[in-house]
Amino acid sequence: MTATTAPEAALGVLPRADGSAKYSHAGYIVTASVNGPIEAQRRDEHPYEAHVDVIVRPAAGVGGTRERHLESILQSSLAQIILVRNFPRSLIQIVLQVEHSPENDYVNTKLVQANLNFAIMPALFQTAVLALLSAGVPMKATATATAVALSHQDGSKRTIVDPSPREVETAQSVHVLAFTSHDELLLAESEGDFTVKEWDDVYETASKVCCQSALQKEGIAMVLDDEDAGGPAMRHFLRSTMESKVAADLHWK
């Protein structure tokens, strides 16, 4: 799968996992596997809920503190949409393998302290949600995520959806937001300098990208590409991906 700007997903790519997904968007390619509910280790057992374990593996290098930080953020947000109370003392194991992240051609790579870009979080989150849906793990709702960068260049302020590594580097602040299918804010992480007003604008932009479902503007799902707030209709993309998967599964009916 080549790294493209429009989101693409393939489900069931790993034959031995309960559920799996390969997702590519804005230069990031991530493969996720979901196994569960399976037996949890004694130390992770919870008497009333399932334990959700997220493991993030970078493409090159050994994972470090940054990866553990991403894991804990993803774990707390995913545990909120999975119906963990249905499977006490079990484990839902999600492994995210980064296959490709967009290169910054102006900088030489540094290896050993593999530092995953903050802007990879929406791709990780989305792949995890797709893999959970593919595994048939009962959930309260689905969710979509996006990254927004605010940059002040030449005096003008720009809001960039799905920023490239160069844009992330030069931006004043980068934000990642995720919304559930009930339009609730599930995840909000930010890095950099910004005001409360700026964050509100980011919230508006992100909710437009994530919560917009199909049938906008004369019944056609638009993929806007203009300077102010563009971005693919994430929810529509999620729905159409799952719909084709289910149609293929139930072809015999």
Partner: peptide, 10 residues
């Protein structure tokens, strides 16, 4: 470096 993860097998 070969580090097997639970993706290989739980």
């Amino acid at each position: 470096a070969t580090e097997l993860s639970p993706m290989t097998s739980p």
